[in-house]
Design a binder for these strands. Sequence first.
RNA 1: GGGCGCGUAGCUCAGUUGGAUAGAGCGUUGGCCUCCGGAGCCAGAGGUCGUGGGUUCGAAUCCCGCCGCGCCCUCCA
Length: 542
Amino acid sequence: MIVKRVRELLEEYLPEGVRFQVGPPPREELGDLATNAALVAAGPLGRRPRELAEELARKLAEKRELFRKVEVAGPGFLNLFVAPSYWQGVVERVLLAGADYGRSTLGAGRKVQVEFVSANPTGPLHIGHGRGAAVGDSLARLLHFAGYQVVREYYINDRGRQMEILGRSVWLRARELAGEGISFPEDHYRGDYIIEIARKLLRERPDFLELSEEEAVEVARDFALAEILAEIRRDLEDFGVHYDVWYSEKDLYKRGEVAEALEALKKAGYLYQKDGALWFQATAFGDEKDRVVLRANGEPTYFASDIAYHREKFLKRGFDLVVDVWGADHHGYVPRLRAALAALQIDAQRLRVLLIQMVNLLEGGQLKSMSTRAGEFVTLRELLEEVGRDAVRFTFLTRKCDAPLDFDVDLAKSQKSENPVYYVQYAHARLASVFRKAEEAGFSGEENYDPSLLETPEDLRLLKLLDFFPQMVEEAAEALEPHRLTYYLLDLAEALHDYYTKHRFISEDRALSQARLALAKAVKQVLANGLNLLGVSAPERM
RNA sequence: GGGCGCGUAGCUCAGUUGGAUAGAGCGUUGGCCUCCGGAGCCAGAGGUCGUGGGUUCGAAUCCCGCCGCGCCCUCCA
């Protein structure tokens, strides 16, 4: 957290509101850290950058426990050379904190909801949902670790037209199974899982086909919903994703939330009748066009329930921040939902929407379609069974979420170094192996050590990375970008592997061994903490 | 036609919120096992950051115009 320390120091000397940068300099010879603070602050202070830089350099250099040298360079950059003793102290900080190293109070206990996946319960989860699950779950872990109070939620669209179609799909397949010749409509759910559900329904309800059409469709709908939802839960559990709340859209109506929300919008003066439908004046808040909330046939739109749902999140359930993880194909929804929040006098800044781009499955050759209705898709379960949980989760988090992802199945299955998940896990397992050896050599792991013996360039590289971890956690949480964890872990693993080939943890030199084992323990801890935030296991052996 | 996202090494992608000479993996070329796990490491080659302007001390990053790709533009979800 050296960067944070430097920031705090500089903020004491500079006027408030000056946005300056503290980060690694472009070249190693320029020190450990560089800042443009003098450049940025010179203007507001009415001073020459170079002169201000000299003054700041003198003040910082007084902190002998932090810096061994502070230089002014170019137009007024400050180059900071951090005292080795500061870096060496990080081992103790990591070992003391253990699994809590990197935990932050950034969130200050604020309540945040992460709503993710929320796929319609009309079929099994496919790989696109898997990406949303990996991102949402990792983000929830990250926010929790960063000091937020987190609720993970799945919103179930368990009513409306698509539920009727689901019911009809099952009903038609059941009649088909009974030998009846039927024609199956294009816009119905065509997947084989529908036939399975129909078969099971016929077993459990032998009288099913004797029911009236209306009754049968209703029975089939409820039956299919329960079946599919159970399967979705199972898939997510097997993926290591656990929800705090499964939120039913149907309940939202039962409790009158939708009517209440529409009433609130009406009171605020943003609803009007046109062509027999009820419209929300979204254009008043920057959306492209006004949106229907009640259709001419009296049915509320999906948008209407969404307004009510989000109104409840903020106004009744008291979330300070709501993160929605959506498929990128829903991006058109964002402006209208923000508009509705604004109309309800809710600060739309409190809603953050992550749009997850498409996943293309690459196996030997090319991609596969992912249309639920057409029934052609690779399910999350199939991918999990083929590739394994850790590799799937890690791979989904190797890309920022607003970029499309080509999921290379062959690569994810590979157990070679080209597969990034093994690269990181191997670093952890390798250290575990070192400790098994250390024990044989008579090290308990609890000995005192002299951190000043950690002085090679490879030591310092690891120490700096360990020091950076808490900051990286905060930045990733603030930016809602769990993929930063992935890249950090790859860096740390690389530094460790490099160290491993150049130095020995266990040697004749007992004091040196003790210091290096302490470092190894700290690295292992941070690898484990980071992997845990991704929901990926940190194996002792592979 | 409009909106959103994306164009960075042969391929797949990072790029610390505007900083100094743009990075990694794979692939490729050449090296490293008496040794804690070689599932590893080191070195080399490889670039008009799609393109043309603009903003300023300074742009891959911000603004505008083009080009290409994807997604979305329903009283579907």
